[in-house]
């Protein structure tokens, strides 16, 4: 049974991409997924890269609560599951920025170059090939809100999803460093104090 709805709940939509080592199909796992209350999600996959996707429309008082309860439920239903990321994707191309902000690619390109708008567009997070830059959506959404007073729809969750996805990545990397305590300690030194228990 999904979490009970009450009058302050809203419906939150998001996707969880995960890997289930050794699983070629989700069919044997559907009973467990329903028992864990995941029947508010559509399950798809596997994709060519072996990942599965669960698209949730989950009732909860807040977006973060919806996401966390969904991740907990997936973990309970699917022992050994590797949670890769929660979408909407934080890494965005120029075209994805245009789609999310209702602009043309050219308009966004001019904004990124400071040739239109107030300037100060966030620096790219990286290049995926010689010609294609990508940005962190959390940074871009905040710039649209602060610099242009045009907060993109759904942008209010960008910072949370960016941090959560980084935490999921860090959990995977910490597993890789399990047998290398010196390197693990080195990483721990740089964990932000906001994210370490008091």
């Amino acid at each position: 049974m999904s979490p009970a709805a009450n009058t302050t709940d809203e419906t939150h939509t998001f996707q969880v991409v995960f890997v289930l080592p050794g699983a070629e199909s989700l069919e044997p796992h559907l009973d467990a997924l329903q028992a864990a209350g995941c029947d508010d999600a559509a399950f798809m996959g596997p994709a060519l890269d072996g990942t599965f996707t669960a698209e949730f429309d989950r009732e909860a008082p807040a977006f973060a609560a919806a996401v966390v309860s969904a991740l907990d439920a997936l973990g309970a239903a699917l022992p050994g599951v590797q949670l890769l990321r929660v979408q909407p994707e934080d890494i965005v191309s120029l075209s994805a920025i245009a789609a999310r902000t209702g602009r043309t690619d050219e308009s966004v390109r001019l904004l990124t170059q400071g040739r239109r708008g107030p300037g100060g567009f966030p620096p790219a997070a990286g290049w995926i090939n010689e010609k294609t830059q990508v940005w962190r959506w959390a940074d871009v959404a905040r710039w649209f809100s602060d610099a242009l007073d045009e907060p993109p729809a759904g942008g209010e969750h960008a910072a949370f999803l960016a941090a959560l996805n980084d935490a999921l990545d860090l959990a995977a990397r910490a597993g890789d460093l399990r047998d290398r305590p010196g390197e693990l300690e080195a990483v721990m030194r740089f964990l932000p104090k906001e994210l370490t228990p008091a």
Binding site: M1, S2, T11, L26, E27, L30, Q34, G37, D39, D40, A41, A42, F43, M44, G45, P46, A47, L48, T51, F52, T53, E55, D57
Partner: peptide, 26 residues
């Protein structure tokens, strides 16, 4: 296919209207 397929259908989804939306989005 990269959609990814397949899409598993619940007989008693938690919310039928939302399951219909999930199908339409897919």
């Amino acid at each position: 296919d990269r959609c990814p397929a397949p899409f598993w259908l619940w007989s008693t989804p938690a919310n039928a209207a939302n399951h219909a939306k999930q199908i339409r989005r897919y």
